[in-house]
């Protein structure tokens, strides 16, 4: 009797999960794939084929934008790691008690604020009539207004800013669990700062580094706001192409193919990152 009842309970719990995953995740992606391999031959007439993918590889604008997006996302990830690691280390190891909580909270606050607001802030700072241009003029470093917006450096600054918190949080968590006595032992055994960093701290922080890098890479690759607003009209970002195909050109078949390529790239890099560091998705994300 009780087993029947708990079986019913089990299915009742399973139902929402399956409904969510099947209707909103699995079926839409299968649908996206089928649309991406159909070519329009007439009004509401379609043929199956790889034509949309061929268009992507034959048009330099498309695959160059794709490569550019990938390379800039990888550079953003690397830059975020290099800039974020010392901060995470400082919060985890150099501070105690209330200072630590305060610094950690100060890192979290910008993450709660909408990305749009953060990007807006950078626009005010970087534009021709903006703060940085004016500040440099008043010091006398430049003679006239300079436009800092609408270039790749501006995109990178914005991308690092929006994603650095996702690097710092997992790093602080893993570094926190490293016992200080390990580092002291390293010094006692004659190690110097560099060798201790390489032999003790980085291996211990590896899970945090991997999950931080994966999240930052994903966020940069899938970002739309920052490249479009900070990069201006000519900024080429792959999500921008997808948006154009779907909403402006109404070419859903090509847009779906683009979407699938982006999905393949992001899952490929995530898979590679997990394999190289010998971790699983469950360990990295499910915390």
């Amino acid at each position: 009797m009780t087993s029947d009842k708990s079986k019913l309970g089990f299915y009742l719990l399973l139902a929402p999960l399956l409904l969510w995953l099947v209707v909103l995740i699995i079926l839409p992606h299968i649908g996206l794939f089928f649309v991406s391999i159909s070519e329009k031959v007439g009004v509401r007439e379609y043929e199956t084929g790889l034509g949309n993918y061929a268009v992507f590889f034959n048009e330099p604008l498309y695959w160059r934008t794709f490569a550019r997006t990938a390379i800039m996302s990888i550079s953003t990830t690397a830059l975020t790691l290099i800039l974020g690691f010392p901060i995470a280390y400082y919060i985890a190891k150099m501070t105690r008690g209330r200072t630590k909580t305060t610094l950690f909270l100060m890192c979290l606050i910008p993450f709660w604020v909408s990305e749009l607001v953060r990007t807006f802030g950078w626009m005010i700072l970087l534009r021709e009539t903006g703060i940085i241009s004016n500040a440099l003029q008043s010091i006398g470093l430049i003679s006239g207004p300079v436009e800092f917006l609408y270039n790749d450096a501006a995109i990178m600054v914005g991308l690092v800013y929006t994603s650095i918190l996702f690097m710092i949080v997992p790093l602080v968590t893993t570094l926190d669990s490293l016992d200080d006595s390990m580092i002291e032992a390293g010094y006692d055994l004659g190690g110097n700062g560099v060798s201790i960093l390489r032999e003790i701290i980085i291996p211990h922080a590896m899970p945090g580094i991997v999950s931080g890098c994966i999240v930052v890479f994903m966020l940069s690759l899938g970002n739309y706001l920052t490249p479009i607003l900070l990069g201006g009209k000519d900024s080429l970002w792959f999500t921008g192409l997808i948006y154009t195909q779907f909403i402006t050109r109404f070419n859903w078949e090509l847009g779906s193919a683009f979407g699938f390529l982006l999905l393949a790239l992001s899952s490929g890099i995530v898979f590679l990152g997990l394999k190289l560091s010998r971790q699983t998705l469950t360990e990295t994300m499910g915390r």
Binding site: P28, L221, L263, V270
Partner: peptide, 13 residues
């Protein structure tokens, strides 16, 4: 790990 734009277009399609 699915980019938000892709989630959007897949549900739209």
């Amino acid at each position: 790990i699915i980019p938000g734009v892709i989630l959007g277009i897949s549900i739209l399609v």
